[in-house]
Amino acid sequence: MQRVNMIMAESPGLITICLLGYLLSAECTVFLDHENANKILNRPKRYNSGKLEEFVQGNLERECMEEKCSFEEAREVFENTERTTEFWKQYVDGDQCESNPCLNGGSCKDDINSYECWCPFGFEGKNCELDVTCNIKNGRCEQFCKNSADNKVVCSCTEGYRLAENQKSCEPAVPFPCGRVSVSQTSKLTRAETVFPDVDYVNSTEAETILDNITQSTQSFNDFTRVVGGEDAKPGQFPWQVVLNGKVDAFCGGSIVNEKWIVTAAHCVETGVKITVVAGEHNIEETEHTEQKRNVIRIIPHHNYNAAINKYNHDIALLELDEPLVLNSYVTPICIADKEYTNIFLKFGSGYVSGWGRVFHKGRSALVLQYLRVPLVDRATCLRSTKFTIYNNMFCAGFHEGGRDSCQGDSGGPHVTEVEGTSFLTGIISWGEECAMKGKYGIYTKVSRYVNWIKEKTKLT
């Protein structure tokens, strides 16, 4: 034993070699072989497995989906700052455009905790909710729209109204504003409101030439003092309507412009014939205590009207009353817009006519005020429907199939267009061939041609 100890002390290297040989010859039971080890760690190889990531292109799944990435790591994937920024906006807080917040056709661009709407022409605001041009839906104005110097929408209202708090709607500024039905039992019968379409306001006024200088022999019209197929109006439903009495009662109609003036057809009036105007009328054979009678003290036909040349060209006249009318729910003026808007309103496509005229061709006159909704007829169809001249200051309205029309005794009465609950004068009943005849239409004086003249002559002093 002493000898062994001496050998170990003198030859430590020998001992180490012996131990190493023993270990190498022993069977290893701690580690699995290569094949079995792979069965336990069965993990798919990654895209760049075996390579240094710093030297390969980034992978979106590896960089940002398996674990949260930084902007720089995302930049490695896209290799483009702009594309990385677009991805980053949604990656950080989701897609803010998912709810489609942009209105009126706006395009949404996502941002971090926010979004941006790219608005089409005519709109602005956070969600493109603000109209900035009158060309689109009248700028959301209830009545009139004008573009300011910086191309912003400025709404306005006709006389007797003021802008509401929203700067879009119009509200009454006087007790009985024009064009409004205020009798409670008839307010439910107000005709369907007309909503502004998209309009090209630059070209809204037709490029028409008034044929002022045409000389033409007097034409022989049949029954051209021209509501057939209409309905009984309720008291106060058309408070701007008046009836004219002269040699015979209810020979023509008219509309209240203001307390002192009536507008009617020029062919209705004769110099030297006494005319009485009755406002607030409903049943011409009954006294309903809503009527107001006034005498006409002055007749002003349009300066281009000449019955000797043509009885229905420039067929418009103004009547001055001896005493002002007292405005109330049964006696209310009709609204008159400017030339541009009167023309736009007419193009809405349908209007209402009213009167006490004959209820059928050569038949009896109506006792109760009649009204009828009539569609506008395109000019080409209008011209083809008659052998008589249709001037540019006239328009056609009615039904091709016949059966409904204005008729004798309705002449001078109103053709009105309702705009968001307020009625505007767009025409004056003038003439036609018979009444409600198939293929024939009622012919009306186009008020847009005469609004400046009306307003100039009827100013209240």
Rank of each mutant, 00 (worst) to 15 (best):
S220I: 11
L376T: 10
K68A: 13
G402P: 10
Y312L: 07
Q185E: 14
S217W: 08
Y115K: 04
Y305V: 01
R62K: 08
R364A: 13
E401Q: 15
E129Y: 03
G412W: 08
F251H: 13
G442N: 14
A397F: 02
G412M: 14
L23R: 01
I136G: 10
L369M: 15
V92E: 15
H34I: 10
V199C: 06
N5S: 14
N42P: 15
S107C: 05
S350I: 08
W356R: 10
V153A: 09
R62F: 07
Q185K: 09
N306M: 06
M65S: 05
V257G: 01
E259C: 03
W431V: 14
S99V: 14
D150E: 10
C102G: 00
G125P: 02
E27N: 06
H361Y: 12
W453Q: 00
R43S: 14
M6A: 15
S187V: 11
C157E: 00
D338L: 03
L24K: 02
V296D: 01
E320W: 01
K126G: 05
T186Q: 12
Q219N: 08
W431P: 07
K247E: 03
G229I: 13
M394Y: 05
T386N: 13
C178E: 00
G50F: 09
L425D: 00
V419P: 01
T445K: 00
V326T: 07
P44G: 10
S184E: 12
C382A: 02
Y91P: 06
N100F: 09
R75V: 10
C435F: 03
P177C: 03
P333K: 04
E434I: 10
E61V: 06
R3S: 12
C268V: 01
L14M: 07
N328K: 00
N38I: 10
V257S: 00
L325G: 00
E67A: 13
W118H: 13
Y450P: 02
G122W: 03
N5P: 08
F123K: 10
D322N: 03
N138T: 08
R364I: 10
Q57K: 11
V195F: 07
R140N: 13
A26Q: 01
D322P: 01
R43Q: 13
E281P: 08
S448T: 06
P177A: 08
A149Q: 10
G253C: 11
Q370I: 03
K39H: 12
C119T: 02
V359T: 15
N135G: 15
K446V: 02
G402K: 14
F31G: 13
C335H: 01
K68N: 15
V77G: 15
G280C: 01
V416N: 03
H34W: 08
L20G: 01
R83G: 14
G349T: 04
A308G: 12
A265N: 03
G409N: 14
C335Q: 01
V154L: 12
L211I: 13
C141H: 00
Q167I: 05
R62S: 13
N328F: 01
K440V: 04
Q167G: 06
V447H: 00
V77M: 10
T218H: 08
I210E: 14
G105N: 07
S107R: 13
N343F: 03
V447K: 00
E35L: 05
E456P: 02
C108D: 01
L460C: 09
N310S: 12
M6S: 14
T332P: 01
K152W: 06
P12A: 15
T389D: 11
I443G: 03
C28L: 00
T85V: 07
T290K: 05
P120S: 13
R162E: 10
F55M: 15
G50N: 14
L32I: 13
